[in-house]
């Protein structure tokens, strides 16, 4: 969230203008986070649509072979790790709001760890597949789901990690005790970013429930 106004050449912003632009930036993070979720919803919805379309078409009686399952234990492990990350991200954001930066950081770094675990297990699961990707509609949509889930984990964990790294650097740049909670523009932007990130993780968790139900339960 940077500004492009060049040093020395730019106009001298009045306090009102600075305030206005700060509000616009915070608003952009807020609405950008929501719009990104909307965008991501359409992406995941394509996968859900494909799943149910192929399931109801059942072409060649090949929606799913008998006893065909993606490795269930791995799947649940990914789901649990992702949900944990989501919970930690949201918990951290709530604690940050309440004023506990340490809680935010501990929860956040734990979340990054669980996110990375989810990523590794999700990739590792691919080596344990008991079916050929093209053997059925289920197998195909499963591959699509795995690719999207990897993308979700990477995006979510990346976002979480950047907020934590940002928090550390803010301490260096702003100094003082708990600069994350100050009224400094950078701190305000930081908090808006954390809120959008936590919101996105909440969204991913809901998606995770849906996909786990689709691929490991149903």
């Amino acid at each position: 969230m940077t500004d492009m106004i060049e040093k020395g050449k730019g106009p001298t912003s009045t306090p009102e203008e600075r305030e206005f632009e700060l509000r616009a930036q915070i608003g952009s993070i807020w609405s950008g986070g929501r719009l990104f979720i909307g965008m991501y919803t359409f992406l995941l919805a394509s996968e859900v649509f494909s799943y149910f379309y192929l399931r109801s078409s059942n072409n060649g009686m090949l929606w799913r072979l008998p006893h065909q399952h993606a490795p269930i234990a791995y799947g649940w492990a990914v789901f649990i790790a992702m949900s944990l990350t989501a919970l930690l991200a949201m918990y951290g954001q709530r604690q940050l709001k309440k004023g506990s930066v340490v809680d935010f950081q501990v929860a956040g770094w734990t979340g990054v760890t669980t996110g990375l675990i989810a990523l590794i297990v999700q990739i590792w699961q691919l080596t344990k597949l008991s079916f050929f990707p093209g053997s059925s509609g289920y197998a195909s949509t499963y591959m699509g789901f795995v690719v999207m889930n990897i993308a979700s984990i990477v995006i979510g964990t990346y976002w979480l990690e950047t907020t934590l790294a940002r928090s550390l650097r803010l301490r260096k740049e702003l100094g003082g005790e708990n600069p994350e909670l100050s009224m400094d523009p950078m701190a305000q932007l930081f908090r808006a970013n954390v809120a959008s990130m936590a919101y996105f993780w909440g969204f991913l968790a809901i998606g995770g429930v849906l996909f786990t139900a689709m691929f490991y339960v149903m």
């Binding site: 965008m39 991501y40 494909s50 192929l54 060649g60 090949l62 053997s135 949509t141 591959m143 999207m148």
Partner: peptide, 27 residues
């Protein structure tokens, strides 16, 4: 995003041999 997903499935069909668009194989 829907086009993106469609293209992704197509690439998967072409590379890792899934059967999203192959009617004979459950797609």
């Amino acid at each position: 995003p829907v086009l993106f997903a469609g293209g992704l499935f197509g690439v998967l069909d072409k590379t890792v041999q899934t059967a999203f668009y192959v009617t004979e194989h459950g797609g």
